[in-house]
Simulated scan of single mutants.
Amino acid sequence: MAGGVGSRFWPVSTTDFPKQFHDMLGTGDTLIQKTFTRLSQIIPKENILILTNEVYNDIVLKQLPMVKQEQIILEPAMRNTAPCILYASLKIKKQNPDAVMVVAPSDHWIEDEVQFCANLQHAFDFCEREDNLMTLGILPTFPNTGYGYIEFDKLDSRPVKKVKQFREKPDYATARKFIQSRNFLWNAGIFVWSVKSVLNAFQEFQPVMFDHFMKGYDDYNTSKESDFIKENYPLAENISVDYAILEKAQNVFVLPATFDWNDLGTWGSLHEKLDKDENNNAVVNARVLLENASNNIIRAEGKKLVVIDGLDDYIIVDKDDTLLIYPKSKEQEIKTIVSKLK
């Protein structure tokens, strides 16, 4: 899934060029390139589909030159994750009704790729045998209020746990209780299931959406598909796959992941993963002179010289004709700032 805008990473991430197409970590690869490389360790490259907005088609082809046009599933409108997953699942069913699939965001940071592949194979094996829906959960390291949580059955001693319920982003006190109870995981938004299982779930819990996309089933993977999707995709309900099916289904399981993970959703989460100086400042593409400065993330273009005195816990980003100087404690509000600027 590579269709999001990533507005909390403004001004680097913009509607024209979202964060998944940027080298956010300064590694030499963009986030979508790293995701494709990671998945291709366990999935044939020709079996990887990229779901993105139609305006990003050329960017995807440029950054992933090994991908064919038919592997890029273009959305003519932003309708959250449920419609794009249903659409892709129906296309896959026409190719292989026995397929098992993973749904992965294109903008996550995963360090231990060997463990990631091992977890993914475990999930594939489980979903090949059972009519179940699976998600990968991340063991919480602190009471994060920016993630959703997955509650699993405490008494379940199996490696794969039965999900009791999904919980929305909590306040700090609730997040602390989740951590202390030891049967909550962060919801990473990485899903594994057979095509048959996920389509059965959509048919049961989202019959209107299912019927809507089934109208074009004969056209999928043909020259007629584009016209059907352009006309009908924008009419689909704007809803996440969590709300649409996962919170309703009774056959949902979670595998506690054994790899390090970060959703890279905010400047603060990026700060966690970058190298830092002795005062916990992280610097990307800039030359700096820092006095009485700590816990900041500083990003500039073209190795610009940045001089800072007396700032603690700030986001400082210089991009084209925009300069952002913003408290990290208020980073969730950057999305609102972007809306006001529009």
Score class of each variant (00 low, 15 high):
P140K: 01
N53S: 14
A257P: 03
L235H: 14
D156V: 08
Q332T: 08
A236S: 08
I72R: 10
L289N: 12
D275N: 08
A173C: 10
V163F: 10
L246K: 06
A104W: 10
I239E: 08
A257C: 09
H271L: 10
H122V: 06
Y233W: 07
M24P: 06
R38G: 02
G137P: 07
K68R: 11
P65C: 09
V160C: 09
R287S: 10
L64G: 03
Y149L: 08
R8I: 04
E204R: 14
K342V: 07
I85V: 14
S7P: 12
L255F: 09
N57K: 14
D275E: 08
L90F: 02
K328V: 08
F142N: 01
V192N: 02
T14F: 07
W261K: 05
K154V: 14
T266G: 04
E333P: 04
I32E: 02
D153K: 05
R299N: 12
H22W: 15
F152N: 03
K91F: 00
E46K: 10
N53K: 13
Y149H: 12
K62C: 07
V198S: 00
E291M: 13
D112Y: 09
P65V: 10
W10E: 01
C84G: 07
T174Q: 09
F166I: 09
V55D: 09
S339I: 06
L139W: 08
A236T: 00
A257S: 14
V198I: 15
D313C: 07
G3S: 05
K94C: 05
P97F: 06
P97Q: 05
I229E: 02
D23N: 03
R176L: 11
K177W: 05
H108R: 12
E75A: 12
N251K: 11
F21K: 00
K93L: 13
T14N: 01
D156P: 09
T135A: 07
D58S: 11
E204T: 13
D309L: 03
K169M: 10
N47K: 12
D125H: 08
R8S: 11
I43D: 01
C84D: 08
N119L: 01
D218H: 13
N183R: 15
F21N: 02
K19P: 02
K340L: 15
R176E: 06
E231T: 15
L341A: 08
R167S: 06
D29H: 14
T135H: 02
V254G: 06
A286K: 04
T27W: 11
I92H: 04
F116V: 00
E204D: 11
P327R: 05
Q69G: 12
G265W: 01
L246Q: 03
P44G: 03
W267H: 04
N251S: 12
E278V: 04
N132V: 15
P234E: 01
Y149F: 13
A236Y: 04
H108P: 10
N279V: 00
P143F: 00
Y87C: 06
V288N: 02
D227H: 11
L290G: 05
D242V: 12
G148K: 09
I316E: 00
E247D: 14
E75S: 06
A282H: 04
V198N: 06
P105A: 05
S240C: 09
